[in-house]
Amino acid sequence: MSMILKTGQVTYNLGPLARLPHGEGRTFQIGTHSIAVFRTRNDELYATQAACPHKGGPLADGLVGDGKVVCPLHSYKFQLATGASIGNTCAALETYPITLSPDGDILLSLDA
């Protein structure tokens, strides 16, 4: 898995994969960006905006599975890969390119 870095993007090393527990998410603060980063049980990585568009719930605290995250406040559901909302009228989540480096570090890219 390699990441193609696009012009105008900045890549951050979020540290080793082991910083995230299996099947959970954590919120990262990168400058002014709050980003929820998820590691599924089979070690796929996803990154979305941190706050639920419904009422600002912390998505990183949500339950994750089957490629979806469920917001812990009111159970609004979203697709992790695309950010698309499922069964609700919220706007889609922002998603960000994320990958694992050959050294096993989590790499996340943001627009500069």
């Binding site: 993007q9 890549t11 090393n13 979020l14 540290g15 919120t27 603060q29 990168i30």
Partner: peptide, 14 residues
């Protein structure tokens, strides 16, 4: 119990 985590470093920019 972390509220938020910080990145380790910025690695590249084009």
């Amino acid at each position: 119990f972390a509220n938020v985590l910080q990145p380790v470093e910025q690695v590249a920019a084009l």
